[in-house]
């Protein structure tokens, strides 16, 4: 049998994984070097991180990002939970269409979403700022939270709900005391995954932000435009690493909610 050797396959995969991770690893390593790029290792420094923490613009942008990401997580998780309940529990006319329409924002290019919101806000004379960004973030996060929660819902053992009803619980009590607790890890996973989804968004935010409402990614973008500085490496490292903590915890709960 002339099958491809697993060894060759592993090497090929190693190259692909390297391609996926090398750029970020290089960025992280060079955020600790004193000069921009020296081939020789010129020592370890934290000065770029200090510069990041002392930068007023970055602090402001971080505040804006959090002011947007936290309500986005709360509101879109709540709406996603209600939507998932509606879609899962009730059969109604046009349910498939509704579910399909809900996922439209997931297939639309971000650019088109951003532009359409820009035209919308301008048309109704809604001044661009934190609020316009927040509303945009909630609308692109709802499909995500709904999707994650529905996926969990489909795995709930429905006989538990039936049992509760048989034992005399009404629909409302069953929902509060049985379904929601079973769903809690899924809801938590949705919330934790929405955080980086909102925090990292660049393209849509770019079009719906106004003067004085730069989020962290928008601030990074303008720093990049001004020229590559090692401070961007440090800031980039922080932006990549910190939200990942949420993703790792979120994935953990997502897993646990399956088993």
């Amino acid at each position: 049998m002339n099958r491809i050797s697993p060894r060759l396959l592993s090497i090929g995969c190693g190259v692909v994984y390297l391609f996926m991770y090398a750029p970020l690893l290089v960025l992280m390593v060079f955020s600790f070097t004193p000069t921009e790029y020296g081939v020789a290792w010129e020592g370890f420094t934290l000065k770029w991180y200090k510069a990041v923490f002392n930068n007023k613009n970055i602090q402001d942008a971080l505040k804006v990002s959090l002011i947007i990401a936290i309500p986005t997580v709360l509101i879109s998780t709540a709406i996603g939970t209600i939507t998932a309940f509606t879609l899962y529990r009730y059969k109604f006319l046009g349910r498939a269409l509704y579910q399909g329409a809900l996922y439209i924002p997931l297939v639309m290019p971000d650019l088109v979403i951003g532009i359409s919101l820009l035209l919308f806000y301008t048309s109704i004379k809604f001044e661009l700022g934190i609020l316009t960004i927040l509303l945009a973030h909630i609308s692109f996060s709802i499909p995500l939270t709904t999707l994650v929660i529905i996926a969990r819902m489909q795995r709930i053992d429905r006989t538990l709900e039936d049992a509760a009803m048989d034992l005399g619980a009404d629909e409302w009590t069953t929902m509060w005391k049985v379904t929601l607790p079973l769903l809690k890890p899924g809801i938590l996973a949705a919330a934790l995954l929405t955080f980086p989804w909102s925090f990292n968004d660049f393209v849509i935010t770019f079009f719906v932000s106004g003067v004085g409402s730069s989020t962290l990614p928008l601030r990074v973008y303008s720093m990049i435009r001004l020229g590559v500085s090692p401070m961007v490496n440090a800031l980039g490292t922080l932006i990549v690493v910190v939200p990942l903590i949420f993703v790792i915890i979120g994935t953990y709960f997502d897993r646990r909610s399956v088993s």
Binding site: L24, V26, E36, Y37, P217, G236, P243
Partner: peptide
Amino acid sequence: LPFWTSYLVRIYAWMTLLSDHGL
């Protein structure tokens, strides 16, 4: 995992690799 990290920073990382003064 990379999908959940900043898409802007990931693209920027390529700039630092490929630019004239890049790695």
